[in-house]
Simulated assay, not measured.
Amino acid sequence: MPTASHLFSSAAKIYIAGHRGLVGSAICRALAQAGCVNLLTRTHAELDLTDQAAVRRFFAEEKPEYVFLAAAKVGGIHANNSSPADFIRDNLLIQTNIIDAAWRSGVKKLLFLGSSCIYPKFAPQPMREEHLLTGSLEPTNEWYAIAKIAGIKMCQAYRKQYGFDAISLMPTNLYGPGDNFDLHSSHVLPALIRKFHEAKNNKLPEVEIWGTGAPKREFLHVDDLAAACLFLMEHYSDAEIVNVGSGQEVTIAELAALIKDVVGFTGRIRYNTAMPDGTPRKLLDVSKLSALGWQSKISLAEGVASTYAWFLQHGQNSRL
């Protein structure tokens, strides 16, 4: 079993904001496996992160030493398009309240989690950290992206003005235990797991997938992201953002074939080429992270298999 980080002792008070989410729950698992026993968590019912007074009170009373900021209002294209005010307001409030209260209460270090959607819609591929703010955003999720960019800039501003040790990570497409498998609001990988699973159970002859299957995407298992978070908490302290990804990409067709095999669906895959493909390629340049000494360990095949196993065990209780 890995040992507690040199940065924080096993008894250090560590607050994980958003501990019930895909990322936050993975960070909790990683910290527990590292021997950290003093983890602070609060449900939304216990602490409304959009309430500045409540957040300040929590930090003043609990005085966490380290903070992983994984809390956010998230959703797919439809949610972003239909509730743009909610997405920009709630995310700005959550991250502003936590970053400011953390600094005020003397937190030693804070890690802020952004998203690869912060990069311009037509950023060169693979996307490097310096591509931030060099072009217009994807209109369907710009509200979320602008809030995340503001979070990055707030971390940089508090470092510059107050010397607050806040770092920002930009993860690629994530998947794993605790994912959202709802066909209307989930991302492509968990949605395909659900589609192939239901087609197998219902003995359907084929599964339809939108587009040509040609677009390329990068995927990172959420436990790999959590490992990277602990690594960077210990080994990185700078204003500049760090991309976190696998550095590998697959076509949607390759992904579908892998998931079909893992699930055990024996029918056909039919591509509905009348439907749009979306962005041809989305890959993060992870050379900065690699130079720091970290690389992902969970292969896509291994990750999909373990995620499907989790879905089989917890699927009816997850977001379907």
Rank of each mutant, 00 (worst) to 15 (best):
E254Q: 15
L192M: 15
S115G: 10
A257P: 02
W294A: 07
I167K: 05
A12W: 06
T212Y: 08
E206Q: 14
K13Q: 12
K108P: 03
R281P: 01
I152Y: 10
L192K: 00
P64G: 10
F219G: 04
I209N: 01
L232I: 11
A157D: 03
S237G: 13
V244C: 05
S237N: 13
G267K: 05
L225R: 00
F8W: 14
H221A: 10
S185I: 05
L113S: 09
P64F: 09
L189P: 01
D48K: 06
A45H: 12
I88R: 06
A291V: 06
A45W: 00
R104D: 15
R57T: 15
F58E: 12
W143A: 15
L22Y: 03
A123F: 07
P171K: 02
E254V: 06
S136V: 10
V37T: 15
D277F: 07
M233E: 06
P64C: 12
D179N: 12
G35A: 11
Q295E: 14
K288V: 13
I209Y: 00
Y119F: 15
R194D: 07
Q295L: 13
T96Q: 11
K109Y: 05
F181C: 03
I14W: 05
A301H: 12
S5Y: 03
G21Q: 08
L110G: 03
T134H: 03
I167L: 09
R217L: 13
A79R: 11
G176S: 06
L137E: 03
A60R: 14
M275Y: 05
C229F: 05
A301M: 10
S290L: 12
K203P: 00
K148A: 10
K160H: 14
T212K: 09
A72F: 04
G264Y: 01
R42L: 09
A32Y: 09
I94T: 01
N141W: 10
L192D: 01
L283E: 09
Q248A: 13
S25W: 02
L183F: 08
Q313R: 14
L69S: 06
K160Y: 12
E65V: 08
A45D: 14
L110D: 00
L39Y: 07
H6K: 14
E65C: 10
P64N: 12
E240T: 13
L137T: 00
K148R: 14
A70V: 06
E302R: 13
P126R: 04
V304N: 01
